[in-house]
């Protein structure tokens, strides 16, 4: 009986899965799309990106000296990520403590984590669209977006760090005659700060990618010239910009993981 039930259960699950795929694929309306033709078109474009990159976008020398437009925009992207991450990393600290079970109690922690999850669920680009309306086009909107959005993830990770705090140390601090702020500075902060910093650096990696995206909706950084180039079908420039993003993201990942290994 149980074997039969298990088998029929598996069968039902399999049928449901097949139905789901049929629904998903048939509904996608790809029938009108000539895949071969599209592929040829795209392949031609990729060829241009690789073989005719617009190197002058990377480095151009004129009468007024040499400029790197790509470099400037990439630098702006990194600066956005740096400021945005810092804001988020600092604002996440109170959230982290308030969402920790050993600080806020079970109920407070649940409420805090709910808020943090809500922030995380909000797609970053959508948040950027709203902030753009409020503070206008430019990198500032991007910085705010990353600052707010980072709170969601960092707050949650911080809360887990706080929940792992060794509280016996506080007893020792009290026994030394330390007051509350001294006990926190000597007993708690050394325990949590390295891990907070490590998570913030990790978030910086994510925010560099986010900063590259946010420009595409007008929030500053390398995304803005990228989306212009896409709209102008400027494939040579797109090739150079993509190369720039790949190199910088890879470099940031490498530096960040080195720093994190050193910290904890």
């Amino acid at each position: 009986m149980s074997a039969l039930a298990r088998r029929s259960g598996t069968l039902v699950a399999a049928l449901a899965l097949v139905a789901l795929y049929v629904w998903a694929i048939v509904g996608l309306e790809l029938r009108g799309v000539n895949l071969a033709e599209r592929w040829h078109q795209a392949a031609a474009i990729f060829r241009i990106m690789v073989t005719e990159p617009e190197w002058t976008y990377l480095w151009k020398c004129g009468s007024a000296g040499c400029v790197s437009e790509l470099g400037q925009k990439i630098l702006e992207t990194l600066q956005m990520a740096l400021v945005g991450t810092t804001i988020g990393a600092v604002l996440a600290v109170p959230f982290g403590f308030l969402a920790a079970r050993n600080v806020a109690g079970v109920r407070g922690s649940r409420a805090g984590k709910f808020i943090l999850n809500a922030i995380r669920a909000f797609p970053e680009v959508v948040l950027a669209l709203m902030l753009l309306k409020a503070v206008g086009l430019g990198p500032f909107a991007g910085v705010l977006t990353m600052g707010i959005h980072s709170i969601g993830m960092l707050g949650k990770l911080y809360a887990e760090v706080v929940e792992g705090i060794d509280r016996d140390v506080l007893e020792a601090m009290a026994a030394c005659g330390a007051n509350r702020s001294q006990a926190i500075a000597f007993g708690i902060l050394p325990q949590v700060l390295p891990e907070f910093a490590s998570f913030a650096i990790y978030r910086f990696e994510i925010n560099v990618r986010a900063a590259a995206i946010l420009g595409m909706v007008g929030a500053g950084g390398i995304g803005t010239p990228l989306i212009f180039a896409v709209n102008n079908r400027d494939w040579g420039r797109i090739g150079v910009i993509l190369l720039g993003i790949i190199v910088v993201v890879a470099a940031v990942d490498a530096v960040s993981s080195y720093l994190r290994r050193k910290l904890v």
Partner: peptide, 17 residues
């Protein structure tokens, strides 16, 4: 992995229509 998802989508939207 280094290419952000939406950047990829924008470039592919340009290339594939």
């Amino acid at each position: 992995r280094t290419i952000p998802d939406l950047v990829l989508a924008a470039v592919l939207a340009g290339a594939f229509g």
